[in-house]
Write a protein that binds this DNA or RNA. Structure first.
Length: 595
RNA sequence: GGCCCAGUAGUUCAGUUGGUUAGAACGCCAGCCUGUCACGCUGGAGGUCGACGGUUCGAGCCCGUUCUGGGUCGCCA
């Protein structure tokens, strides 16, 4: 192996231009491919910018040529030579007009044959990719994703700086709070038996920074939640987190629309029209069955409860009587697009969302078939078709349930599934919107009480202040989510900024005075000293980058992600630790408490 | 915690009704080759069919359990 020994890189491989022809260049990188023609040898050298062809000629530089013969895939080279025009050009390569005639070759590192080829969009299974993540990251598409992620972070820093935000770090070792996700806990050595929690978000700290008078804060914040993973959910993730003083909903929305506009322009060259659409939560649910609607296609929900509330079909009639609803979507052309077998699959699909079944009517060109028409009168059937706007060739899909929540969940998911099956989702189509006026409270079946839908520091709508304790069900919050193509990109709220209101909120959540003060005493105490009205928002950086790159999982835009069981395949974290480490944390505590 | 999908050579996959010695492509190794660029040609090496158990005269294939990875429901203020 050789050292650099005075070698200085003059250029990156992928950035070499035809205008450099005749100049002596020095480049370094990894061997992508070797083509041995006998007395002529080509090596494609790769760095993060791209590929440059190196040429070795036995006749003109025998020593270098013979050295080059030993080179294999992924060896690390530093070479110097004169750039020359190729006799035959490669149109597929940005540097395809030129090649480097190598006069000096240093082999800086050898490499074993990698367990998979380092190529664009390689189709290797995730286990292997993640075990050798450092090799996976060499692939050009991964390099681009990570570079794009850097660019988004850079835009965030520049944009929020230009708009008067300070970047301020908040602690990683912090205090566990109830409400919300499971915390990751870190045992304290100095305080045996006590634990830090890793932050689920910097929520309380950023609010306190507003109280401290910093006016505008942002942070590229690592957050931790000990919950099960999904394609768009990692236990450890990054937020672009921000908070502003003396603002209401419109102010927070405006500054963040500016940020999104800039990101889309600078990263994708896409012009986003602002102000963005805003949908109240209730309308989003009624029209799309979701608080994160995908607006790239229609298939809107239609409420037919009133048309079937007196019908003879118990499956429709009973849910309406029990306070639920009957709703449908119309799939244009669905009568032909979805044969019986596919409809059966859709029936199974909605069951995973708790629906008991899926009723349907196919308005085929050669006649109508239906799973429920025979139970209704002609008038009832016709009124459903009229209300839904279904035409010949369409398919009507109906979900009935005694709980609206289930109807929305099933139909909301079903409309996305149908869109996917009909290929209605166009790449390059970016539909952003705000969902606003979320309910303040959500009833938790598990806990048998109302919990904060957003978090307990969220302020109610001015019009609903009186409902916090008296009418939880219809009390709305100054909370807003930013949605892109059916994915929640971020969310935030205007916060409660007076101790009275905060105490009222905790009381409404059924927390005792003792609980409240043990867990949030610092916040309540702080609010006594003059908090400005404030609010903010946090973007999921991973999700934003995922959508910008077109990746299907946040794993593809995180350098070292975790797998579904929250372990990391490369390092095998989490892992057992030495007994000595454990004893320091727990044994001494145990002995003390036994004394 | 539930449901669904996948696991065969280094990689991506094929493998018929359960039947002789498990195949292909790429990669790897060797030889030949002066204009390749997914170089080409010739030859070669390479397999605990994820693991364990069962059914069977016989299992990559059928059954059970389990492990690993993925998707998803619950969960994720």
């Amino acid at each position: 192996m050789e050292s650099l020994n005075g070698f200085k890189r003059s250029d990156f491989c992928g950035l070499v231009k035809s205008s450099h022809i005749g100049k002596t260049l020095s480049v370094c990188g990894w061997v992508q491919r070797r083509r041995d023609l006998g007395q002529l040898l080509f090596i494609d050298l790769r760095d993060r910018t791209g590929i440059l062809q190196l040429a070795f000629d036995d006749a003109t530089a025998r020593d270098v040529f013979e050295k080059a013969l030993s080179v294999r895939s992924e060896y690390v080279l530093a070479v110097t030579g004169v750039l020359r025009e190729r006799s035959s050009k490669n149109k597929d390569l940005p540097t395809g007009d030129v090649e480097l005639e190598v006069s000096s070759l240093r082999i800086l590192a050898v490499s074993e044959t990698p367990p998979f080829e380092i190529t664009e969009n390689s189709d290797v299974n995730d286990t292997l990719r993640l075990k050798y993540r450092y090799l996976d990251l060499r692939r050009p598409d991964m390099q681009r994703a990570i570079a794009l992620r850097h660019k988004v972070v850079k835009i965030a820093r520049d944009y929020f700086d230009e708009n008067g935000f300070y970047e301020i770090e908040t602690p990683i070792l912090t205090k566990s709070t109830p409400e919300g996700a499971r915390d990751y806990l870190v045992p304290s050595r100095v305080h045996p038996g006590k634990f830090y929690a890793l932050p689920q978000s910097p929520q309380q700290y950023k609010q306190l920074l507003m109280l401290s008078g910093f006016d505008r804060y942002f942070q590229i914040a690592r957050c931790f939640r000990d919950e099960d993973l999904r394609a768009d959910r990692q236990p450890e993730f990054t937020q672009i987190d921000l908070e502003m003083s003396f603002v209401d909903t419109d102010d927070v929305i405006a500054v963040n629309e500016g940020f999104l506009k800039k990101v889309f322009k600078d990263v994708l060259g896409v012009e986003i029209k602002t102000p963005l659409l805003r949908l109240p939560y209730s309308e989003a649910m009624a029209r799309f069955g979701s608080d994160k609607p995908d607006l790239r296609f229609g298939l809107e929900l239609c409420d037919i409860s009133d048309l079937v509330k007196n019908c003879g079909f118990k499956v429709f009639k009973d849910p309406v009587e029990q306070g639920g609803s009957v709703r449908c979507i119309v799939v244009p052309g669905g009568a032909d697009a979805f044969p019986r077998k596919q409809i059966d699959a859709l029936v199974e699909f909605v069951k995973t969302y708790g629906a008991k079944g899926l009723a349907w009517t196919r308005l085929g060109k050669d006649g109508t078939s239906s799973s429920f028409a025979k139970f209704l009168t002609d008038d009832e059937n016709n009124s459903i078709i009229a209300r839904s706007g279904a035409k010949t060739g369409d398919l009507i899909l109906v979900v009935a349930d005694s709980r609206d929540k289930t109807v929305f969940a099933a139909l909301g998911a079903l409309r996305c599934e149908c869109a996917k099956r009909l290929s209605l989702l166009n790449k390059g189509d970016y539909r952003l919107l705000w969902v606003t006026e979320f309910p303040m409270f959500d009833y938790s079946e598990e806990e048998g009480r109302y919990v904060a839908m957003h978090h307990p520091f969220t302020a109610p709508l001015d019009a609903d202040i009186g409902k916090i304790e008296s009418d939880k069900k219809s009390c709305r919050a100054k909370a807003y989510d930013i949605i892109l193509n059916g994915t929640e990109l971020g969310g935030g709220s205007i916060r409660i900024s007076t101790p009275d209101m905060q105490e009222t909120m905790f009381r409404a959540l059924g927390l005792t005075h003792e609980d409240t003060h043990a867990r949030f005493g610092h916040l309540l105490e702080a609010f006594k000293y003059g908090a400005p009205p404030h609010g903010g928002l946090a973007f999921g950086l991973d999700r934003l980058v995922m959508l910008l790159t077109g990746a299907e999982s946040v794993r593809d835009v995180i350098a070292f992600p975790k797998v579904q069981n929250a372990s990391e395949l490369m390092t095998s974290a989490p892992d057992v630790v030495d007994k000595k480490q454990l004893d320091e944390l727990f044994l001494e505590h145990k002995q003390k408490s036994e004394d």
